[in-house]
Amino acid sequence: MDILEILSYGFIQRALLAGVLIAVLCSVLGVFLVLRRLSLIGDGLAHVTFGSTAIALAFKIYSAASLLVSLPVVLLASLGILRLTEKARLSGDAAIGIVSAVGIAAGIILASVGGGYNVDLLSYLFGNILSITREEVLIAAGLFCVVMLLLGLFFNDLLAITFNEELARVSGVQTRLISSVLVMLTALSVVLAMKLVGIMLISSLLILPAVSALQLARSFKACIGLAALQGCCSVVAGIFVSFITNLPTSAMIVLINLLFFGCACSLRRLLTPGNSN
């Protein structure tokens, strides 16, 4: 099977395009989230989306319009996670756990009260990288531009609060605002990208490229770059490998990310002198 033939399929082209955009997006956000100990926020927000989509379906709002319900709810939930870590002095994972449990419980209760749904909720909630439409490529591109632009504008502020919040505040960074920007960008990306490529891919792209880059990076900018590179390569390689091996695409992308992580770990061992200090 030659590459040109693989590339001749429209759905492969769209998967590559939107997949790469989303991968870069998630990998870059992931570096900040992992360092702020919010790496599971992707899963947490996916569960909230489940709950909020249940609300939308209870009111017979389907597909695109259900975003109008779930987007504000998920944005609020992301801020809720942030406030819980600040106010209740909870660790990030505990705060995410609380919010995601509430999301799921809401979905379940609505399902049992409403006597089931007209469709299988989960299948509508999570997309598949192989079934991205032309409009969704545009959505991915728009999302990519918005998130990258904001990350660029706030880059140093984000670096400062991720490094140390107290020091950032004394450098005049509005730490609350910047943290909110970070989690809201994450929420936006999770909600939109989940519909395109599914949650398994999103949550692994938020974590794995970042942790691999942390093994090797020699500067923060390099870390962002390496993470983006891994995200991007894993999607491209995953799609081609899925083609050659006839195995599910998203799972293949996750596996390739794991492989990269393994390589990064062993490379780090090789590069650092044997003695631990």
């Binding site: 099977m1 693989i6 399929y9 759905f11 492969i12 998967a15 598949n128 192989l130 799609i239 081609f240 899925s242 083609f243 050659i244 091996t245 006839n246 195995l247 599910p248 695409t249 998203s250 799972a251 293949m252």
Partner: peptide, 12 residues
């Protein structure tokens, strides 16, 4: 089960 890229192409 989730289809692979190859399965999608074969279906096409």
């Amino acid at each position: 089960s989730e289809p692979s890229a190859a399965r999608m192409a074969a279906m096409v």
